[in-house]
């Protein structure tokens, strides 16, 4: 059974590239573009890894992360955060809030894949 990854990302092109990479590596991938839907979709799918963008319309990635950590069923789900704001301050906040890892855009495909593989425990 393939490992499942949810991508929470408002930029369709970035989501598409991630989808392509992870698909090829054998993951089952779901893309959520709206912050409001994210927590519901994650609970529904119970993914092995969540890739979460920080700057989302309607809801910030940090708020979603906070909700994830508070929800019993998905509180342990590994989260890889992506942000186009390359400031150490944001990184620290993300880690404090409960992210397992944090990557700055633009990222290298190999790095993302390696990190997802690690977080998924495969």
């Amino acid at each position: 059974m393939p490992k499942k990854v949810i991508i929470v990302e408002d930029e369709p092109n970035i989501a598409e590239s991630l989808n392509f990479i992870l698909n090829r590596a054998g993951y089952e991938v779901k893309w959520v573009s709206d912050g409001n839907d994210a927590v519901f979709e994650i609970q529904n799918m119970q993914p092995d890894v969540v890739i979460l963008d920080v700057m989302l319309p309607n809801r910030s990635g940090l708020e979603i992360l906070r909700d994830l950590r508070a929800a019993p069923a998905i509180s342990k789900t590994p989260v890889l955060m992506l942000s186009a704001k390359g400031q150490t301050k944001d990184l620290a906040i993300a880690i404090e809030t409960g992210a397992d890892h944090y990557m700055v855009k633009p990222f290298s495909n190999a790095d993302v894949l390696a990190k997802v593989t690690e977080l998924a425990g495969t």
Binding site: E11, N13, I14, S17, F20, M55, K105, S108, N109
Partner: peptide, 23 residues
Amino acid sequence: SHVSHELRTPMTSIRSFAEILRE
């Protein structure tokens, strides 16, 4: 901070797809 975000977003797609095409 905004400018950084707005520049990094298209660059992310460009870099990612360029890598895909190459690899």
